[in-house]
Amino acid sequence: MEPFLLLGIFVIIFIWYLTFLATRLDRLHHRVETSWANLDALLQRRAAIGLEIARSEIADPASAMLLTAAAYQAREASIANRSIAESGLSGALGLLLADGQSNHRPAEVVLLRELSELTDKVRIAIALHVDAVARTHLVRSKYIVRIFRLAGTAPLPITYEFESDVL
């Protein structure tokens, strides 16, 4: 009977380990969703501020057009294209702010300060999201997770290639 007992114990430990991994993975997927929801909300707000800046007197007509187009693209992009669209918006905002003079009216100063605070947050949110996605990929690439299909039907999170240097 001894070998059967040992085998039984081994099977129980193995099942425990599998369900442990499944729990861990489920938690990671949840973390990815949360960090994405956070990032998405911040990016939406950034696009809104971008539009507001485009309409204000900070922007000349040409950069206003560029900025409006970029902001709309960022808002309407599908998840797969989001990263490129947001980088476009970062670039448009960057161009405008790089040659911006400092003699703005109070309302515009507030707008610009809001944008810079938001940019700081977006930068952190990107780091949090990228970390969560990388972690999930790491665990999902384990053989045991792939063989036993522990991820279930959850889609593989997409790695966003945000260009943090243009922010």
């Binding site: 949360t34 929801a37 956070n38 947050k121 949090l128």
Partner: peptide, 10 residues
Amino acid sequence: FSIYEMSLVA
């Protein structure tokens, strides 16, 4: 605190 807020989104 802004890190707290980001974690509270869920």
